[in-house]
């Protein structure tokens, strides 16, 4: 979705969240098989797909709510609950598994407080296990808010989370890639 459209959605969302859904559906209505792209756009706009949203989509598209529900529960991309401020995805591909993705996960749970995965009690972090991100040569890999971090160690995870807490994931990247000396302070 373009930044422009996202902006438009933001304005609409402040007025009434349902307007956003209406706008999204209008962009798709002629497309056969549009149910999945519609739900993807809704998740992009809200961060998750709330069950009550499905009713509205159903009213406007004529697709049964039960069918929409079956889609949302089938595909692992869809979330039905809101996420924390920062979304961390831990790659669990084969290369990452061999390189210790499990240890990275444990370190992340330890650092963020999101024990057992999910969202941390302070609402700052959501941990998600994802299938291969395709950066196998840099294993183990995580993404923090869509920024990729590779060749991680449990110690490096501590640094990354520390910087993200300070609101500087940028610096975290520099600290890892260049071994410190971040110019952003």
């Amino acid at each position: 979705m373009s930044a422009l459209v996202m902006n438009e959605f933001k304005v609409l969302k402040e007025k009434n969240p349902l307007f956003v859904i209406d706008a999204i559906i209008q962009r798709h209505n002629v497309d056969p098989g549009a149910a999945i792209p519609i739900l993807q756009d809704i998740q992009n706009a809200f961060g998750y797909v709330a069950p009550e949203v499905l009713e509205r989509v159903s009213e406007l598209t004529g697709i049964w709510a039960s069918e929409l529900y079956s889609i949302v529960t089938f595909y692992s991309q869809f979330r039905m609950e809101p996420i924390g401020e920062n979304l961390i995805q831990v790659c669990h591909g084969t290369a990452c598994h061999l390189a210790g993705a499990e240890k990275i996960t444990e370190a992340l749970q330890h650092e963020t407080g999101a024990r057992g995965g999910g969202t941390s009690p302070d609402g700052k972090f959501t941990l998600e296990k994802v299938a291969c991100l395709g950066c196998c040569s840099l294993a183990p890999v995580i993404t923090v808010n869509e920024e990729t971090f590779g060749r991680l160690t449990p110690a490096a995870v501590g640094k990354v989370i520390g910087e993200v807490r300070k609101g500087k994931s940028d610096c975290a990247h520099d600290a890892l890639v260049c071994g410190g000396g971040c110019s952003n302070g």
Binding site: P32, Q40, I71, Y75, S76, Q77, F78, A131
Partner: peptide, 25 residues
């Protein structure tokens, strides 16, 4: 372009087709 929604089985051709058609893959 159709973006997948995170289902490995959609690499199978008939499941992939179902997914493009807007169904469970």
């Amino acid at each position: 372009i159709r973006e997948g929604a995170g289902a490995f089985v959609c690499g199978e051709e008939t499941a992939l087709i179902a997914s493009i058609e807007g169904k469970r893959g």
